[in-house]
Design a protein around this nucleic acid. Structure first.
Lengths: 201, 201
DNA sequence: AGAAGAAGTGAATCACCATTCAGAGCTTCC
DNA sequence: GGAAGCTCTGAATGGTGATTCACTTCTTCT
């Protein structure tokens, strides 16, 4: 028994893992999952390819971790708004706005989370997180219906439409003036979203 | 000069190519782009892997052809309805219905066209075709606005929302009762679509 | 029939990456 | 200081799947 990990050493390892995840996220946001080879990610983090396997059992495991971290942040932010103060229609409007603005600000990451080709394990994660976005939208819509602020509707379909609409606009850019100006785009999207949910104009 | 292609021979070659494209489309609809290896596709068509290269210069070229054919059929059908008879809101309703029903009937193909991970060349085609779906929806919406049947709006954003909404529902199945029953799903989707465009209920 | 040339075959080749591993370099603790 | 046990390295390994090519089989035409 001549070696045991000291707390310092453990912190150093944890920090290295953290740094790897952060760098990998940047690489993915920049070049997409397909181009984010183990070598590219390791280079970005300033370590050797083999060292990645000190922290993750496979490339896939690292990819899943990258996805989860980033997606969880978005769910948290969106949940904060949708479950916060105000009447349902207003929260919905602000939710769409926040979701959109964040995606526009980090377009590469948004694309990676929403649509970029990825290995099956990441695809499964994506499915799970899309359900969570949808559930958040759906519950605010149901509140609105319960409060007679919104018409009767299948809240899950409306929620899916909202997620799809935002994703579509982000992933396949528009050719209208709105594409040039984030504020215009946000205004357009929130207007569609409110009509979609049947909120009085 | 001891050999020249006869018309019969040329027809035979054309038919072989056609057969290859059809079989490849089935394979893709069944197992997705990622699993559709040259060998798998050649096997399905009953030819050797090497023979694929008699008809296409690369796997990628074959994939693009498969995508184009299938996507073009959808654009044609959708265009037929959206540019056909009736007032704009009604055409829109029927367009959404047709788009949805066709996708539900051939779910594998719809997924391949709309969302399945694919090589970059197919991704580029996808982008081009999504623009065309959107343009079709956008022009019927604009007609509706011009005819004062629909409220003023950014037609492209609404069109994107429609494409996104339908795609989302098809690609990531719902957990509501509507998921069980195609008619219910179509009813729900057309309702959202009409609200989205602002059509009076 | 047989020469000339095309299409079809499928095993071999090639390219691309994730993953491994033997050795180099650190840390810990006596 | 130095033995023991860790982390880090990066070239070598291995698997996968597209592409090639020497060869076989089929068509055409004199």
């Amino acid at each position: 028994m001549a070696y045991r990990k000291t707390p310092t050493e453990m912190r150093r390892l944890e920090a290295a893992r953290e740094h790897l995840v952060v760098c990998a996220t940047e690489v993915v946001a920049d070049v997409g999952w397909a181009q984010a080879s183990v070598t590219a990610v390791a280079d970005a983090a300033g370590i050797a390819a083999g060292s990645v396997y000190q922290h993750f059992s496979s490339k896939s495991a690292l990819a899943v971790e990258v996805f989860r971290r980033a997606a969880q942040r978005e769910v948290d932010v969106l949940g904060e708004v949708l479950e916060g103060e105000g009447d349902p229609a207003d929260r919905l409007r602000r939710g769409v706005e926040v979701f959109t603005r964040r995606a526009l600000e980090n377009h590469g990451l948004a694309y990676a989370l929403l649509a970029a080709p990825a290995e099956p394990a990441v695809g499964a994660e994506r499915l799970a997180f899309r359900r969570r976005y949808r559930a958040l939208f759906a519950s605010v819509i149901e509140e609105g219906v319960a409060a007679d602020q919104l018409p009767r509707q299948d809240a899950e379909i409306t929620a899916a439409a909202l997620t799809g609409a935002i994703g579509e606009v982000l992933v396949y850019p528009l050719s209208t003036p709105a594409a040039e100006d984030a504020d215009l785009l946000v205004a357009g999207l929130t207007a569609v979203a409110l009509r979609c949910a049947g909120a009085a104009p």
